[in-house]
Every structure is written in structure tokens, then in C-alpha cells.
Design a protein around this nucleic acid. Structure first.
Lengths: 118, 118
DNA sequence: CCGTATCCTGGTTGATACTG
DNA sequence: CAGTATCAACCAGGATACGG
């Protein structure tokens, strides 16, 4: 597994490179949500109750910079901003599904059940 | 995406749970290597030139604790310790391949080529 | 050869407050 | 409503030293 440079950072393999784009606690949940529907900032925030204001903003900026989502500002008051997954972003979905399925298998083996109600 | 507790830590979704087992810089490279062959500590260290002594030890311990690898000590001097991937560990390989393939696609789009020689 | 312990650094994230 | 700035806390990870 040869390593390589990109934008001044050293990566050791393609997996690490991929995870630098879609890794972290929030990027996959955000893409997962946006794949289901276009959403404005406050809606996303509502669907990701644990994310902080700052993190939602920075993660969305990075996803936008990498071409996984688009950001559309409607010049009204109060502001209205829509986030939409791109074709490139949709190509992440099967990857998420694979990891998600593996996670569920691990959870099954450990007898973990997700909470169903409030 | 309901959240759940496991061993005192709160997880927000199955993806995060999966990544707590196979995420980080080193777990997947280690499993990838051990999938090809049984290896002793010093061999692994040689194949992962950037990993620190401490990290290789701690990551192997965690992989062992989660049942992804086994550790066999041969009681000789100097010590001889072998690491072997388990059946459970092999189930991670397709996940790695999916992420790896996605990483390669991203690299292709950006015109990144891995170094081939020394 | 392999492993543990200690110290220390820097990047990541949350809280809070302020803006158009 | 959406975004930015600042500060502090935390934690992953490296360097080093010592032990069986």
C-alpha cells in the first residue's frame, strides 16, 4: 500500500483517503438524510439532535467543498438555505449501506437493540 | 436513526458503532494485512512503516478484544507472538474493499496516483 | 522481541456569544 | 434563520524510557 500526498497531507492508503472525505461522526448521517430529501439547515438540525450548530455548519461546508452536496441560498428574510445531495454524493450511499449493514450485524451479535420509541 | 448505549458510551447510529470497531487510521490496514497472512508483531510493524510502536500494540489489543484477531504467544526467548485474523475479522474485509474502491474512485477523479517505486 | 507506562503535543469539538 | 468567532476541554497519538 504505497502512500501519497494530496493538498499537503500524507495519506497511507485509499481507505484513509476515502475516510477523510466521508468519515467523522457526522458526514455520513448528513448524506444519509439528504439522500432521502432536500433539506434546509434547520430541518437537518432537527433530524440530527446531537450535532452542534458549529459542527453542522463546518461539516456541510466540507461536504460542499468536496462536491457531495450543493448549497442554495434564497435571498429572503429570514434566510432560507437548502442543501441537496449531488450525483457524486449519491455514490457514497452504497458505501454507507455497507458499513451500516456491518454495524447492524455487530449489534445483533452483541444483542443490542436500537431504541424504537421516545 | 435512534441512538443506543453500549458499554457506557452513546452511539447515534449503526455506522458510528461499526466505525468504533474498525475505524481509526490503523485497524483496517492491520486487518487487510492479516487477511493475507499470519504475521508476528515485528512483521506487521515492517509492513506498516508509519505506525508507532504504541499504536500498533493498542490497536492489536482492541482488535483482539473485539474478536477480529487472535494473539498467540510462543514461550521462547526472545519472545515470538503471532497475530491471526479470525472468521469474524474476515467479515470486515468486504467492508474494507467497498471503502477502498470508493477511495480509489475519488483519487481517480482528482488525478491522484499512488507512488509505485521507492 | 515484544509490551507497558509516562509525559506531552496538537487537532477536534462543544459552549457561548455576536452578526446580517 | 443561518452563519461566524472565540475560547476552553478533551482525547488521539507520538516520543521516550523501562521491563520481562
Amino acid at each position: 500500500m504505497p502512500d501519497f500526498l494530496h493538498n499537503g497531507k500524507l495519506y497511507y492508503n485509499p481507505v484513509e483517503f476515502a475516510m477523510s472525505h466521508i468519515g467523522g461522526t457526522w458526514k455520513m448521517p448528513i448524506l444519509w438524510r439528504l439522500n432521502k430529501q432536500v433539506m434546509r439547515y434547520s430541518e437537518l438540525k432537527k433530524y440530527l439532535p446531537h450535532i452542534s450548530h458549529k459542527m453542522l455548519t463546518t461539516q456541510l461546508r466540507e461536504l460542499e467543498a468536496h462536491g457531495f452536496v450543493t448549497r442554495t441560498v434564497f435571498p429572503v428574510v429570514p434566510p432560507h438555505v437548502e442543501y441537496r445531495i449531488t450525483d457524486k454524493g449519491r455514490r457514497v450511499i452504497p458505501v454507507i449501506e455497507t458499513i451500516r449493514q456491518f454495524g447492524r450485524e455487530l449489534m445483533d451479535e452483541l444483542g443490542i437493540v436500537e431504541r424504537t420509541g421516545p
